[in-house]
Nucleic acid binder design. Structure first.
Lengths: 214, 214
DNA sequence: CTGATATATGAAACAGGCTTCAGGTTCGGC
DNA sequence: GCCGAACCTGAAGCCTGTTTCATATATCAG
């Protein structure tokens, strides 16, 4: 059920990507604009009118590239999700120690939020717009997280009496909450005391209890 | 700028609470109904029509008690915020040990979310509806949390090299994330492995590093 | 019992924003 | 330089959901 180029898309139909450079440019302009508008106003308060205006195209042009408002939103969430995971993965790749990976992962996350404050707010909105999409976002993040933690447990870098999934959601929750409080609200990197606390808390939390024997 | 009883409220005016028992009952029915509808549909997809229908009152009655849609939403957030804090405080009051307080606090929170699945979604929506309200919710929660943690630090139950506020937001984030994943998505209490992990993680995280001695 | 006040009703006015439509315009290949 | 496909336009249709209003009923003090 793919609308042919030149035809108007039926509701719910998939619209093929534009073939010419010009079309691709326009589509991208719409996505960029949507990121800003959704981020600033929230999904429901954002209007197609404003999205197209900021993208410097006519209202009708929007429906050449997206069947409806929700569709461009989904596109945005997918993009954000991918970029976030790639960014963190890239920063963490070379690090051997899991604790260090966590610390850098948190830092990278904060930095990402700071650079894309809008993209980030978009995710929160997904909860209201499309619950499945929202869960998908967290599940994909959690999956990677769990794998990494299991590996670290096998390597003895994280105590293995902890459930990896529980840990994954705990850490994601921490990062979001802290990111919201310090980065989104205060608009800057978390203060030094916060960063120290994160490290210390994770260190003892992940490595575990005193072992009487070594 | 308070609308007198019997008068129709001007936009933005404050409406006094109903004086008679009958009025109070009706107002409460509307609030309960709103909690359900906002929770299920989200603020923007929720309609006054459905709220009044489920409350068994006529459409116009709504505007006897609330000047507009947003207003009842705010009311709801305030109510839930208060109830949540009271509930947790009550469960935790008799406990001396901070770690035990945390564990019970988490459990109580999960139970609260289970009983008021809507609370959670309502709060998240606040982010889009009224950012100040959203922040107010977390700030009030954090305030109490910070005080409790400081006291525990003074009593030597929590390591004192950690920043209390950072810790508070970390723990709130954990609770929310886990509550979302296990209670909201799966609809039941978190599994045993998760509860054990929470305890173990908090225990070493809060009490601190392994001490070789003792 | 009676008037004054509080509470209740639901049809209709109103507003705002998504989506459609009936044509233009641009552009690359021949 | 011509033709068809791809791309673009923006006024208007349309639908949904908030808010108002004129009117009706319940309650209670005196």
């Amino acid at each position: 059920m793919v609308a042919r180029r030149g035809e108007r898309a039926k509701r719910g139909a998939v619209i093929p990507l534009p073939t010419t450079a010009r079309g691709q440019r326009t589509r991208q302009k719409l996505i960029d604009s949507a990121e800003a508008v959704f981020g600033e106003r929230g999904f429901h308060n954002a209007g197609i009118v404003e999205i197209t205006q900021r993208a410097d195209v006519a209202l009708g042009t929007f429906y050449l590239y997206f069947p409806d408002k929700r569709s461009i939103f989904e596109d945005l969430v997918h993009t954000l999700n991918t970029r976030l995971r790639r960014t963190i993965a890239a920063e963490v790749r070379e690090i051997d120690d899991r604790l260090e990976q966590e610390v850098v992962g948190f830092e990278t996350f904060f930095e990402f939020v700071r650079k894309h404050r809008n993209l980030y707010r978009v995710i929160l909105q997904a909860e209201t717009v499309d619950d499945d999409l929202y869960r998908w976002h967290y599940r994909t993040l959690a999956e990677g997280y769990v794998q990494g933690l299991r590996k670290a447990q096998a390597a003895g870098q994280v105590r293995s009496d902890l459930d990896a999934e529980t840990l994954a959601y705990s850490l994601m929750g921490m990062a979001e909450s802290l990111g919201s409080r310090y980065v989104l609200w205060d608009g800057k990197r978390p203060p030094a005391a916060t960063r120290r606390t994160i490290r210390a808390f994770l260190e003892s939390g992940l490595r575990g209890k005193p072992r009487r024997k070594s």
